[in-house]
C-alpha cells in the first residue's frame, strides 16, 4: 500500500524538479565494476556506458571500449594516475595553486612522489611560479603538468624529494 502512495509522491517530486536529487546528474559512473569513464575530451565525466567489468566471461566487450585509462581490472591505470587526477580536478588544482595550498594540491604533490614534509615547499613553488605553470586561459591539464614537472626538476630540494619527477 505504501508503495502506491510513494508512487504518487515520487511522480510529484520528480515532475517538480528537473534538477532534483533523484535525477541522475553528472558523473554517475566510474571506472570498472559496471560502467566505465574517462573519455579523453574535456568537460564533465564522460560515460561510455559500457555495462561490464568483464568479471564474467560473457561480458568482456567493455574492457576494450575506449577505456585506455582503465586497467583490465577496471581501476585507473597507474601510469596515467597523475594525468587523470589533473584532468578531473583541474579547477580545484589551479585555484589551490594560486592560493598556495589545498587538498588537491597536496594530492598532486603525492602523485609526484613528494614526501609529506615538503608539501609546504611544493605549495610555495607553484604559487610563486603560477604564471609559468598555468600560462593562460587555454592551458590544458597536460600542459600544466609538463610545466610543473620542469619547475620541480629545476628546484634545488624538491627535485630530490619528489621521487616521481623525471629529471
Amino acid at each position: 500500500m505504501k508503495k502506491f502512495l510513494l508512487v504518487g509522491m515520487m511522480f510529484l517530486a520528480t515532475a517538480s524538479f528537473s534538477n532534483s536529487v533523484f535525477a541522475a546528474g553528472y558523473g554517475d559512473a566510474g571506472c570498472g565494476l559496471g560502467s566505465l569513464v574517462f573519455g579523453n575530451e574535456g568537460g564533465p565525466v564522460q560515460v561510455l556506458a559500457s555495462t561490464t567489468n568483464g568479471t564474467f566471461g560473457s561480458q568482456t566487450f567493455g574492457i576494450t571500449t575506449g577505456t585506455s585509462n582503465c586497467s583490465p581490472e577496471g581501476l585507473v591505470m597507474l601510469d596515467k594516475e597523475r594525468e587523470i587526477f589533473a584532468q578531473k580536478n583541474y579547477s580545484s588544482i589551479v585555484r589551490e595553486m594560486a592560493v598556495g595550498e589545498g587538498e588537491n594540491l597536496e594530492t598532486l604533490a603525492g602523485l609526484f612522489g613528494c614526501s609529506q614534509d615538503t608539501r609546504n615547499e611544493f605549495g610555495s613553488l607553484v604559487q610563486d611560479n603560477f604564471g609559468s605553470i598555468v600560462t593562460s586561459d587555454t592551458t590544458s591539464p597536460n600542459e600544466m603538468l609538463i610545466h610543473l614537472q620542469s619547475q620541480l626538476a629545476n628546484h634545488a630540494t624538491l627535485s630530490k624529494s619528489c621521487v616521481a619527477v623525471m629529471g
Partner: peptide
C-alpha cells in the same frame, strides 16, 4: 522526468555497483 520516476518506482532500472576514484564524487 515522469518516466524516470515511474520506472524507478517499479524497479525497471538496473541498479549496479560502480567503483571509481573518490575525487570524482568529491568534484560532483
Amino acid at each position: 522526468a515522469v518516466l524516470y520516476a515511474l520506472k524507478g518506482l517499479v524497479g525497471l532500472f538496473h541498479g549496479t555497483f560502480t567503483v571509481f576514484p573518490y575525487y570524482i564524487k568529491v568534484q560532483e
